[in-house]
Simulated assay, not measured.
Amino acid sequence: MKHFSLLDLSPIPEGQTAADAFANTVSLATTAETAGYHRYWLAEHHNMPGIASAATSLVIAQVAAATKTMRVGAGGIMLPNHAPLVVAEQFGTLATLYPDRIDLGLGRAPGTDMATARALRRHMAPEDSFPQDVQELIGYFGDDDTAVRAVPGHGTHVPVWILGSSLYGAQLAAFLGLPYAFASHFAPDMLEQALHIYRSTFQPSAHLDKPHAMMAAGVCVAPSEEEAQFLRSSQILAFARLRTGKPGPLPLPTHDLATLVPAPVMQQVNHALSCSATGAPDSVYRGFETLISRYNPDEIMVTGMIHDHAARVRSFELASNVLKSFISE
Rank of each mutant, 00 (worst) to 15 (best):
D8P: 04
P13Y: 09
P13N: 07
T17L: 01
F22K: 02
F22P: 04
A32E: 06
Y37C: 07
E44N: 09
G50I: 08
A52R: 12
L58M: 15
V59A: 14
Q62F: 06
V63D: 13
T67C: 01
K68F: 01
G75D: 04
G76Y: 09
G76V: 14
M78D: 03
V86E: 10
F91L: 11
F91M: 13
Y98R: 07
P99F: 14
D103I: 05
R108H: 08
M114S: 15
F130N: 04
F130S: 04
P131I: 03
V134M: 04
Q135H: 08
E136I: 03
Y140D: 03
V151K: 13
V158C: 04
W161Y: 14
L163V: 05
S165Q: 09
S166E: 08
A174F: 10
G177M: 13
L178Q: 07
Y180W: 04
S184D: 10
H185P: 00
M190P: 02
H196E: 10
H196F: 01
K210W: 06
A217M: 03
V219C: 14
C220W: 10
A222M: 08
P223D: 15
Q229Y: 08
S234F: 11
S234I: 11
L237F: 04
F239I: 00
G245A: 05
G248S: 02
P251T: 10
P253I: 02
T254N: 02
L257E: 08
A258K: 12
A258C: 00
Q268C: 02
V269F: 03
H271L: 00
L273I: 04
S276E: 13
T278K: 05
D282N: 07
S283P: 01
V284I: 07
V284K: 05
G287V: 06
E289S: 13
S293A: 13
E299Q: 10
M301K: 12
T303V: 14
G304C: 05
I306M: 05
H309P: 03
L318A: 06
A319E: 00
S320V: 07
L323E: 03
I327T: 13
S328G: 14
